[in-house]
Simulated assay, not measured.
Amino acid sequence: MFHNTFISFQLHDNAISSLPPEFGELKNLMTLSLAHNKLTALPKEFYKLTELRWLSISHNEISKIEADFGDFVMLTFLDLSHNKLTILPPGMGYLVRLVEINLSHNQLEELPPDIVNLRDLRKMNISNNNLKKLPPLGELRKMEVLDANHNDIEELPDFYGCAALKELYMANNYIKEITEEFCDQMQHLNVLNIRDNKLEVLPENISLLQKLKRLDLTNNNLNKLPRNLGLLSQLQSINMEGNKLSFVRQDVIRGGTERMMKYLRDRITDEVVSETRLTPEEWPDKYTLKKSQALMVPGRELTNVPDHVFKAAAEAEVHIVDFSKNKLTEVPRG
């Protein structure tokens, strides 16, 4: 005889290998923890628990869940991590109230396309699976944290629309490039961990990631760094070890964030000053402005800046302007 007025049921850390069919009669259940057991499957009656708000079945041996999982429409928290799932059923997209989902440590090879219907999702953990690619994630407008570490992902997905994303973890994948589109889309990012990938170049417009506080590029194939990297003014931590940066001295790379940022910032000024081809008449062209989204002319003996320069900069949506170390006597009108 099952008592069906339970609201919360904690069964975690046992050795339960199956659930009786009567389990489906616990109709009022809102919180259920079955974590750290020996479950290999869920009975079909389990899917009647449609009042569930919080569900953890992590650390079991479940290899399959049914499409009926889509009936748990009240769920706000779901943890299916540390199981043996190779596929998720269609219908996961019905769980539209989910705020947090943990699918890590399974054997998933792809995400169902309707995962992007989880419009309230703040946090998604899909790390330690066998994912090769991710669908465009732009409809997850509220997602703040995405952990996709330890997969087989070869390229960054389309994040256009992910306006709330603050932390992105893509370590231990096979990503070859950070694209210009990515930098365009991710201007609100605080943390980017893309260590242990196959990156060869960084785009010049990486300077758009102005809110970045932590950047981990350890163990990639970078052999040069874009000049504009030094413009990331809020960086508190940058890691570059294990790349092929032959032009940067090892003691700078190992010398921590402050040392690295000073090197990058000094380099911007030095390079701009030493570029003799740029006389005051030869302002950066529209293409250069658009690509770097920066107007950099320090140390040029300038006494004024013509209006057409500001017009071109405005059209190129320039974010960063450096007129330091010149001979301006007033703020240019433009």
Rank of each mutant, 00 (worst) to 15 (best):
G255P: 07
L208D: 02
E204N: 05
V201K: 10
K224H: 09
N197G: 03
K166T: 06
L192Q: 05
R227Q: 14
N193K: 12
R277T: 08
M261I: 15
A164N: 14
N172E: 11
N228L: 10
A164D: 14
F182Y: 14
E200C: 03
R259V: 09
T257V: 07
L165V: 04
E275R: 05
L232M: 09
Y263I: 01
R254T: 12
E271L: 05
C162I: 11
Y169H: 13
M186W: 02
L209E: 01
L232D: 02
E177H: 06
N220P: 15
G242H: 12
K198G: 00
Y174L: 05
K198T: 03
K262H: 15
L245W: 05
G161C: 14
R259N: 14
I238V: 12
N197P: 07
R265H: 07
T276D: 03
K244N: 15
L199N: 00
N173K: 01
L168V: 10
F182M: 08
R267E: 09
Q250R: 13
N221V: 10
A164K: 12
E181V: 09
P226C: 11
A164W: 05
C183G: 03
D216H: 14
I253R: 11
L231S: 12
L278R: 13
M240N: 01
K198S: 04
K166S: 10
K262V: 15
L222N: 08
V252N: 01
D266C: 04
T288C: 02
R259F: 03
N190Q: 11
G256D: 14
D266G: 05
T276I: 05
